[in-house]
Design a protein around this nucleic acid. Structure first.
Lengths: 211, 211, 211, 211
DNA sequence: CATGAATGAGGGTTCATTCAT
DNA sequence: AATGAATGAACCCTCATTCAT
């Protein structure tokens, strides 16, 4: 009878790995990739340094993995928010709202994607570009549809998507840095939505009930 | 021959310092703050490592100083472009155009401001925030004026300025990454200008001739 | 059922220990002491890392023990081959043959003794010296006897034994590295035997039949 | 006038590099590749750890370089000793003598070649094999010549060269380990020379004056 | 008995910075 | 002014070893 309950052990191990990844995410978001040492992470996690290397191959790999996961989560979440709606106003409002929600409840996620992974690791240049691309693509689809349906005038939807994505990023970053973020969130969503819809030249033939 | 010419010497020194700063800016933009070693910089500048420390107190200080200078240059340039015009459409068009121009002709400058100075140095967080603030303020003034003159509807000009700044950044970053940047520049300026003006709810009572 | 069979258990344990030692020997021979990690050994053995430390106190002790055992085996085997013969030519031929046999059929053993245990562990310096001493002594006895019986001329038998041992080692090491080792083995034995006997000044009054 | 005397500086630097290499050679010979840490070497050399990496790219490269240089030196020295003589007895005597001399006056060199570089570095396997090959070839040339001139009977000169090389190594290693090495050196040379010549079946038609 | 998660000392290496020349 | 040899704190990572289950 060698030993028992590989399942229970496995679960515990997975839980711990996840916990350590959360910790690492926080530390990376706090200090940036370079300033965050492996010792910082394990100290924060309350484990020995060897434990880090038991769970992860190395600092860089973990960071890239974290970036990938986080990017997927962010993009997927916003994508669902957008795709769940049918009209452009609702799509924009819903997408912006979900982006803001993530920023409010998982600030580290947004921070990592928007500022954390920049001068960090060479191999991240590509990943980061891919993430930006995804973000832009997220918006381009509803724009193209709206264009087809002549709800917005003829325009370069690709470039407009970039503008939309950039506007969202900046507003949200500023929101995060302001003290009463939660209170301002609703206003920010409304302002952004209006700005974007107007910017795209959307004319509200049908009454666009806010939210 | 007693030595005179302290002025000439000083000039020479300043010239060399400036040259080294240009070199440093390039290297920082190319590799990022952390990957760029002091040795990289002096090698590129063709001087010895000791020379670096004759002209600059240390790597971080130089970087911060570079950031400051570059931020000033960028903000001043755009500010002049905006303030030189009287109507909102022209202000927006001119500001965007000048931003794009800098991106085209001094890509290192834009790169440093937008991506280079991010995870680099803790003390830069503040500086970076100040720069973003300046950028936003740049736009807010014309917006407030337009609001006063009822050229745009009632809105949170602060937040709109953030959105405008963010939209510009993202579009310009994408422009820089695209192969035929120069050819696309004009289109980008036009698209951005339209998007911003529309987004702000500007109604073109007066015909807005482009540029 | 009260537990009996402490003997059977012990046997099983001994069997497992022996198996693990064989595995360890192989891994050490393959990779060298330092490159061979405890993890390598247990992975090859198909057990967990804790099991290793149940059977052996630590890596170094195991290695030294392995070295000792292997040295004993090698020396004993060759000793028997030599001592089973009565005349110098047969003793040399038999000793060389048995050495070559071990090299052919247990290459890991020879590898461990000749190259594996060298820069490995400080405490092995002594052990290794003792092993070399044993090897030399192995040859010196028959030489002394032959000298007594005036079958070889007056000479420093100690030094000659060293030379004999060294010649054997080098030829055998080269044999192991050559592709067709088995085919060349017979020739190597013959060549070495002739070289040694001639080198010792042995005059073949009695015909030295090969083997 | 930037600075002067790059030549003098260069000379000093080269001298220091050489000195550090000597130190490193000693430390490697003393402790073996793995036990010798870079910190050990710089402590012995009386410099900071950074200085090591100013002069050498890394520990492994230095070691391999040291091995290469040492191998060349050893092989070249013995080759000259052999090639400077015309008859087999003198060639053998001279070769052995020069090998012994190196062992006496540069024990670290011999130690590094014979025991130092074994389990050390993967890339050294090839180098080490090449060195052994060189050593064997050193002897094979005179043997082939002697065979051509029918000074020794028909035999496998390659294998005999191996045996000769091996015999030398072992005797010399034992010589180094004995307390009165210098006093025994002459005897060792004589014994080895006789053993080898006899072993090759050399018949002294011409009187071979010793040494 | 067996397991494997957890530990941490210690090794190799980098790089910003100093200072004698 | 300019040089570049020298420094050493600090980083990432490995791996032998322990111990609760």
């Amino acid at each position: 009878m060698p030993y028992r309950s590989t399942e229970k052990t496995r679960q515990k191990k997975d839980a711990k790995r996840t916990a350590m990844m959360q910790t690492a995410l926080q530390v990376f978001a706090d200090k940036g990739y370079h300033a965050a040492t492996v010792r910082d992470i394990v100290k924060e996690a309350g484990v020995a340094i060897g434990t880090f290397y038991f769970y992860f191959p190395d600092k860089e790999t973990l960071f890239v993995y974290l970036f990938d996961e986080t990017a997927d989560f962010l993009v997927q979440t916003i994508a669902q928010a957008i795709n769940g709606k049918q009209t452009l106003p609702r799509q924009v409002a819903s997408g912006v709202q979900s982006y803001v929600n993530i920023a409010l409840y998982e600030p580290a996620v947004v921070h990592l994607m928007l500022v954390g992974g920049i001068g960090a690791v060479p191999s991240l240049h590509t990943k980061r570009a891919a993430f930006r691309e995804s973000l832009v693509n997220l918006w381009q689809r509803p724009l193209d549809t709206a264009l087809d349906q002549e709800q917005i005038p003829e325009q370069n939807t690709r470039r407009m998507s970039e503008a939309v994505a950039g506007a969202c990023d900046e507003v949200i970053l500023n929101l995060l840095n302001s003290p009463g973020a939660e209170d301002e969130a609703a206003g920010a969503v409304r302002d952004l939505t209006f700005f974007i819809l107007r910017g795209l030249g959307y004319r509200e033939e049908e009454k666009s009930e806010s939210s």
